[in-house]
Design a protein around this nucleic acid. Structure first.
Length: 261
DNA sequence: ATGGTGGACAATCCA
């Protein structure tokens, strides 16, 4: 018996300021799993009560002020991990859970600030640690691994609004591109790219640029990546631009993938 | 004009 499965990812830029938007979105799109980044709330203040009537199971890992990740799921989540092994900083950026046969990784990759900063080195290290994690734990030919999140990296020129002007930015430069591709070649398929080879599709628009969304000044920084056995079951992957019409949208929007399993 | 805005959280840090 084949079953439809819908999985989404969203950088909320504070889950507490996005409660109404999220409840509306969950009710309308009914994803089976939603990975959230930048919840910006420590665990004892997570707004569990606000989502109680949605009947999703929720796991989260947060810290004060910054970062924070959460997974909403209609299926029981098992084998939960909240720390990326060997991460020297141990910020709340990593969440792993198993939903049935799908292993879900939800990450909020460090943005990197400036290319000559320690934070940028940490960003590169984060990709390296993720690759070690995947290699040591899973088999890309057999396991159904799904890596979702805000990866703070654009893969190709078609993933940013001004490829020449933006080259060298912490989210679009040689080092980040190489680090990201090195993890990809372990065995991930970029589901959105698989269904949309053309460029100009973005998931992030900078608040600081006036009317960046209307002017299409965006970046593709959010991804749903799957190992081959899982990618084969993917029927579609799309960016939900409608969610940008909400009253107080995040600077990112939802990326969604549908599978027949 | 070396900026824009938005969020957390209390003087700035982060994106």
């Amino acid at each position: 018996m084949k079953k439809k499965m819908k999985i989404a990812t969203y950088n909320a830029n504070s889950i507490r300021s996005r409660i109404e938007l999220l409840k509306t979105w969950l009710g309308k799109h009914k994803p089976d799993i939603l990975c959230i980044q930048e919840t910006k709330v420590q665990d004892d203040e997570f707004p569990l009560e606000a989502f109680r009537d949605t009947r999703y199971e929720v796991v989260f890992r947060g810290q004060k002020k910054y970062n924070g990740v959460a997974i909403f799921s209609r299926f029981p989540l098992e084998e939960i991990e909240v720390d990326l092994p060997n991460d020297p900083v141990q910020e709340a950026r990593f969440l792993k859970a198993k939903a049935g046969k799908i292993i879900v990784l939800n990450t909020y990759i460090p943005q990197g600030q400036e290319v000559d900063s320690d934070k940028f080195q940490y960003k590169l290290e984060y990709f390296r640690l993720l690759k070690s994690y995947f290699s040591s734990r899973f088999d890309p030919q057999k396991d159904f691994v799904l890596w979702c999140g805000d990866l703070n990296a654009a893969r190709e020129p078609i993933d940013v609004y001004d490829p020449e002007g933006l080259w060298g930015h912490v989210c679009y430069c040689k080092e980040v591109k190489e680090s990201f591709e090195d993890v990809m070649k372990w065995g991930f398929i970029d589901l959105f790219r698989q269904f949309h080879p053309e460029g100009g599709h973005y998931t992030f628009w900078d608040y600081r640029i006036p009317n960046s969304f209307q002017r299409k000044l965006g970046w593709r920084l959010d991804y749903i990546l799957a190992t081959e056995p899982l990618a084969k079951t993917c029927r579609d992957c799309w960016i939900d631009l409608e969610a940008r019409q909400a009253e107080k949208p995040s600077d990112h929007t939802f990326l969604v993938a549908e599978f027949i399993l």
